[in-house]
Amino acid sequence: MQTAPEIADTSVFRMMQLMMAETHEQRGISVLSGPPGIGKTTAIDEFERRFDGQCLVVKALPSPRGIGASPVSLLQLLTAAFCDSRGLHHYSNQRTQIAYLTSNFRSLLHSCYFAEEMEHQLLTFVFDEAQYLSRAAIETLRFWNDADRTIMPFPIGLIFIGNNEFALAPGRDGESVLSEAVRDRLLHSEELAYANLSDDDIRKVAATRGVADRAAVGVIIEYFARMRRPRSLRQIGRIIANCNRLAQGAPVTAQLVNDVLNPR
């Protein structure tokens, strides 16, 4: 069985870990967005590992109508994911009243935590592919986070992570997916870009995948610098994987990288 490569401690990875941890510890709301291949999923996976039992990662799915997940569908998804994470049995609930689904989730929390734990309990929801959430769904969750008037037994931290469309582009109605009330409560709002990944980050990615030759790594860096190609970690990983495959256990050289990047 092939093992996953070691996590590269890139600047984006460190930045996301810091902001996500602060959001969790302060039971806040944060929004992080960035293009594909920048390392968002890797950061989410590591955050989930670090705070096992204190966070719930939910991947939003695109709606067939392209209007974003509704509050009802999101609450149903959250309930199922929470029960699965705790080993609780749950029924496929077709109830469509937000009040009922909210009350049901509140009861789940009461069943999982002792009353004396509630005041200091930490629980954070992380929404991957958050661009597929509707404005109404995010607005519903805001009331689960309010420190003063939360409708849950304790405020729940919320981290929304999506691509460049998230938090930037208005929806069909001309509004942003984030209301002014949500924006006002944000602890962190960060728009990441390929430019956040430095040459040193590429060196770290190469090192975690067994490429130590400085000249070989230099060829990869030059390739992405030329014509300002997007520094996608996914693309960098594929290039290195091809080099390692062709090297057949031998060290990856600059000539081999050149051959992979410029096939004849």
Rank of each mutant, 00 (worst) to 15 (best):
Thr208Met: 00
Gly237Ile: 11
Ile138Val: 15
Arg229Thr: 09
Asp146Pro: 01
Tyr223His: 15
Leu233Val: 03
Gly174Ala: 07
Ile220Tyr: 01
Ala130Gln: 01
Thr150Ile: 00
Leu192Thr: 02
Lys204Gly: 00
Asp146Phe: 08
Ala195Ile: 11
Gly237Met: 11
Ser189Phe: 12
Val217Gln: 00
Ala167Thr: 06
Val205Phe: 04
Leu178Thr: 03
Phe125Ser: 02
Val219Arg: 00
Ile156Arg: 04
Arg135His: 09
Ala169Leu: 14
Phe125Tyr: 11
Asn242Arg: 14
Arg209Phe: 00
Ser198Asn: 07
Leu168Asn: 12
Arg231Phe: 07
Asn163Ser: 14
Asn145Phe: 12
Arg234Ser: 13
Met152Trp: 10
Gly171Phe: 05
Ile151Tyr: 02
Ala207Thr: 05
Gly171Gln: 11
Thr208Phe: 02
Glu165Gln: 15
Arg203Leu: 07
Arg135Ala: 13
Arg149Lys: 15
Ala195Thr: 15
Arg234Lys: 11
Glu165Thr: 14
Gln235Lys: 15
Gly218His: 03
Ala241Met: 14
Phe160Gly: 00
Asp184Gln: 15
Gly174Ser: 05
Ala130Asn: 03
Thr140Ala: 05
Glu191Ile: 12
Trp144Val: 08
Phe127Asp: 01
Asn196Cys: 15
Val177Lys: 08
Val217His: 02
Gly174Gln: 00
Arg209Thr: 08
Phe154Gly: 04
Trp144Ala: 09
His188Gly: 03
Ile239Cys: 07
Glu139Phe: 05
Pro230Glu: 00
Ala215Ser: 14
Phe154His: 09
Pro230Gln: 10
Leu187Phe: 14
Glu129Ser: 08
Pro155Met: 11
Glu191Thr: 14
Asn242Trp: 10
Asp128Trp: 01
Leu186Pro: 10
Gly237Gln: 06
Val217Ala: 00
Ile161Tyr: 00
Gly157Thr: 12
Ala216Cys: 03
Lys204Gln: 12
Gly210Leu: 02
Pro230Asn: 10
Tyr223Val: 06
Ser179Arg: 06
Thr208Asp: 01
Leu192Met: 11
Ala193Lys: 12
Ala130Met: 01
His188Trp: 14
Gly157Glu: 03
Asp146Tyr: 09
Arg229Gly: 11
Ala207Tyr: 06
Glu139Pro: 00
Phe143Leu: 14
Leu187Cys: 12
Tyr194Met: 08
